[in-house]
Amino acid sequence: MQRVNMIMAESPGLITICLLGYLLSAECTVFLDHENANKILNRPKRYNSGKLEEFVQGNLERECMEEKCSFEEAREVFENTERTTEFWKQYVDGDQCESNPCLNGGSCKDDINSYECWCPFGFEGKNCELDVTCNIKNGRCEQFCKNSADNKVVCSCTEGYRLAENQKSCEPAVPFPCGRVSVSQTSKLTRAETVFPDVDYVNSTEAETILDNITQSTQSFNDFTRVVGGEDAKPGQFPWQVVLNGKVDAFCGGSIVNEKWIVTAAHCVETGVKITVVAGEHNIEETEHTEQKRNVIRIIPHHNYNAAINKYNHDIALLELDEPLVLNSYVTPICIADKEYTNIFLKFGSGYVSGWGRVFHKGRSALVLQYLRVPLVDRATCLRSTKFTIYNNMFCAGFHEGGRDSCQGDSGGPHVTEVEGTSFLTGIISWGEECAMKGKYGIYTKVSRYVNWIKEKTKLT
Rank of each mutant, 00 (worst) to 15 (best):
M8I: 07
M8K: 08
E10M: 10
I17H: 01
Y22D: 00
L24I: 05
C28M: 01
T29S: 08
L32D: 15
D33F: 02
H34S: 08
H34Y: 09
E35P: 11
K39S: 09
L41Y: 13
R46S: 14
Q57A: 14
G58I: 07
E66V: 08
E67F: 03
R75D: 15
F78G: 15
N80Q: 12
N80D: 10
T84E: 12
T84M: 03
T85F: 04
T85N: 07
K89V: 05
S99W: 13
S99M: 14
N100I: 05
S107M: 07
C108W: 02
C108V: 02
N113I: 12
C117R: 02
P120C: 04
F121R: 06
N127A: 08
E129M: 08
L130Y: 09
D131G: 10
K137H: 07
N138C: 03
C141N: 00
F144R: 00
F144P: 00
F144C: 00
C145Y: 01
S148V: 08
N151Q: 06
C155P: 00
S156W: 09
R162I: 07
E171T: 08
F176T: 06
F176L: 06
S182Y: 10
K188M: 12
T190A: 09
P197Y: 09
D200L: 06
D200A: 10
Y201K: 08
V202H: 08
V202K: 11
N203H: 09
S204N: 08
T209L: 09
T209V: 13
L211P: 11
T215H: 03
Q216N: 06
Q216D: 10
T218G: 07
T218I: 11
N222P: 10
V227M: 09
V227C: 11
V228S: 09
G229M: 13
G230Q: 03
D232P: 12
K234L: 04
K234V: 11
P235I: 07
P239L: 00
Q241E: 04
V242H: 00
V248N: 07
F251N: 07
G254K: 00
G254T: 00
S255I: 11
V263E: 00
A265V: 03
A266G: 04
V269C: 09
T271A: 10
T271C: 04
G272F: 04
V273R: 08
K274G: 11
T276W: 07
T276E: 06
T276C: 04
V277F: 00
V278A: 06
A279F: 01
I284F: 10
I284E: 07
E286P: 10
T287L: 13
T287F: 06
T287H: 04
K293S: 06
R294M: 01
N295V: 06
P301V: 11
P301R: 06
N306P: 02
N310Q: 11
A317N: 00
L325P: 00
L327V: 13
V331F: 01
T332D: 01
I334F: 01
I336R: 00
A337E: 01
Y341T: 15
N343T: 14
I344D: 12
F345M: 09
G349T: 07
S350H: 11
G351T: 02
Y352V: 08
W356N: 04
H361L: 13
S365A: 15
L369H: 09
L369V: 06
P375Y: 14
L376P: 09
D378W: 03
L383V: 08
S385G: 13
K387C: 05
T389K: 09
I390M: 06
Y391G: 15
N393C: 04
F395N: 00
A397P: 01
A397E: 02
G398Q: 12
F399W: 14
G403Q: 07
S406A: 09
H415F: 15
V416M: 15
E420C: 11
T422E: 01
S423I: 09
L425H: 02
I429S: 14
S430C: 06
S430Q: 10
C435R: 04
A436P: 15
G439P: 07
G439R: 13
G442I: 14
G442L: 14
I443S: 04
Y444M: 13
V447W: 00
Y450N: 02
K459Q: 14
T461L: 13
